[in-house]
Simulated scan of single mutants.
Amino acid sequence: MNNFDWKQLFNPEFYILLEFNGIKIGLIVVLFIVFAETGLLAGFFLPGDSLLFLAGIYSEALMQQISLGNGFVNVTVLASLVAVMGITGNMFGYWFGAKSGAYLYNRKDNFLFKRKYLLDAKAFFDKYGNKAIIFARFIPIVRTFTPVIAGIVGMNKKSFMFFNILGSFLWAFTMIFSGHYLYQLFLERFHIDLKHYIEYIVIGIVAVTTFPVLFKLLKKSVHLED
Rank of each mutant, 00 (worst) to 15 (best):
L112E: 08
S100Q: 08
S50W: 02
L51D: 01
T144M: 10
A83Y: 04
A172D: 14
N3C: 09
A207D: 01
E13W: 00
V82D: 01
Q184K: 15
T76L: 14
F124V: 07
K114T: 02
L17Y: 01
V148F: 14
Y200R: 04
I205H: 05
Y117V: 01
V202P: 15
A121P: 00
N90A: 13
L214K: 03
G86N: 12
G48K: 03
F35D: 04
F169H: 14
V77D: 10
I87R: 00
V77Q: 09
N21E: 10
L166F: 14
Q65I: 15
N2H: 15
F177I: 08
V75L: 04
A132R: 07
V202I: 12
F145D: 06
T76I: 07
R189K: 13
R115A: 06
R189P: 14
I152R: 15
Y103V: 12
Y58E: 03
A136K: 11
W171L: 09
I57T: 06
N164D: 15
L40C: 08
D193Q: 08
L166I: 15
I66D: 00
F145W: 05
Y103F: 13
G39Y: 03
L9N: 06
L41H: 10
A61N: 14
R137A: 11
F96I: 12
F190W: 11
S67Q: 06
L182K: 03
F72D: 01
S178Y: 06
L17C: 02
A136S: 15
G151Y: 06
Q184A: 07
A79S: 13
G89Y: 02
G69R: 10
I198F: 00
E60D: 06
L62R: 02
G93R: 01
T76W: 04
I28S: 01
F169D: 08
L182P: 15
F125K: 09
S221H: 15
